[in-house]
Simulated scan of single mutants.
Amino acid sequence: MMLSEEMLDIAEENLQALVETEKEEEEIRNLTNPLQIWITSASAPICYQLIPLLANGEVFGMTTEISIHLLDTDEFKNDLCGIVMEVEDMAFPLLRSISEHTEINKAFLQADIIIVLDDILLKREVQSLENYIRKVSEICYVYAPLIEKNAKKEVRVISAGKTFVNLKAMMIITYGPSINPENVIAVATSWETAAKAMLARKLNMNAAGVKDVIVWGNITGCHYIDLSHTKIYGCDSAVWGPANFSRPLMNLIYDSEWIHSEFLSARSSLRSRVCHCAAMLPAHAVATVLRYWFHGSPSGEIVSVGILSEGQFCIPEGIVFSMPVRFQNGSWEVMTELEINETTQEALERLSHDLIQVMISYT
């Protein structure tokens, strides 16, 4: 006896009630089943800066509890215990538990997220670069089967730090064939933000207004910072518009020689700044990528991460290569719609060749 319009109104109300109920149930599940986060080489300074960023609710949301597991060798057990006590005393509302681990066979139990640092190796006695790379490869050779055995099926693995992040991601994918390659990424955000800050200083503006800087290639090795898609918002210039109005970077930096000379030469100092930063920058980079992965990246913005190539942009398949992506609905997709100019394409060919040689040499 009900009119169609009335039935549609009731159906809409029922749908809204269902959505709200599901949201409440998800919040309850998040509170009763905390995310299990494992951090390797947890005595590294990056970890010390990263934990508060993960535990304050801004990364995973204010209704998601987390449990943090710190993994390192026996020689750093006292350091781990000190971190655990200090974090417990901070009483983060969303931190269910934090624990230290030195038994490698029990690593990554029920892990939802694994953050691979291993920068602590830099403090150890390593005779040469080749030996250091071999050490990294050996560690990943141990980690990958443990991830397959102990972690959850859809575990997300982040290769982070200041050295060989592409190689670490590649080794985990290679030595752990059952790990979903789409769930293994390398973090390039430190280079993005450092380049944005450099551009903002040149333009005398807030770095938040610099968007879409792309990092291509081997993140902590030979890479190319691409400004051809960079947009500027809120720059103090003769042309103004609403908050969503942007202008291409190349139209604002009239001194093109600065881009081709000073900016390129400044990248060496940029490398020095990123590689020798204490810990805040790489920790912020990891937290930012995790937040995007779980909640999506800002609409329309480009994010650079190292992923296993499937031939996008004519990059050879099977290598971990930093390229532009967007995060949405808990996953990422490569922004293949971007047009690549001749200069960038030449850089990609060179970087691909260099990275393949690295992978051949150390795999």
Rank of each mutant, 00 (worst) to 15 (best):
Q357Y: 04
P177N: 10
H229A: 06
V358E: 07
W293C: 03
V87R: 05
Q16I: 07
Q110N: 10
E100H: 12
T363M: 14
N183K: 12
W258Y: 05
E138A: 15
S190P: 11
V274T: 04
R350G: 08
L70P: 13
Q16N: 14
M171R: 15
Y175H: 06
E25A: 10
E27V: 02
W332Q: 03
I113A: 02
E130M: 13
D79Q: 05
E154G: 07
E337H: 13
S256T: 10
G57I: 10
Q345N: 10
G176M: 08
H276F: 12
P34Q: 01
K231D: 09
G234Q: 00
S41E: 01
S269D: 12
I302H: 01
T73F: 01
E339N: 09
V126P: 06
I225W: 13
L31H: 14
I133F: 08
A169V: 00
L199P: 00
I66K: 13
I172N: 06
N14Y: 12
G176V: 13
Y175S: 00
T336V: 12
M170I: 12
E75L: 10
I98H: 00
D354V: 09
V187C: 11
W240M: 15
N166L: 02
Y143M: 01
A44N: 07
L15F: 10
S237W: 13
A186C: 08
E6N: 15
F92H: 01
S304I: 08
I39R: 07
N105T: 14
R247G: 11
A17G: 11
R267H: 11
E24W: 08
S265G: 10
T344W: 08
K135I: 15
L146V: 09
E192I: 14
A55N: 00
Q127D: 07
V126R: 00
S97T: 14
A42Q: 04
E317A: 11
L249V: 04
W332A: 05
A287T: 00
I66V: 09
L281P: 05
H260K: 09
F245K: 05
F263M: 03
N166V: 10
T32N: 14
T189F: 13
E138K: 15
R350P: 05
W258I: 09
L203C: 07
F245D: 04
D354C: 14
E24Q: 08
F313V: 03
T193F: 09
S4A: 15
F92L: 02
V303E: 05
H101S: 11
N206C: 05
M90C: 12
C222H: 11
L264T: 10
T288S: 09
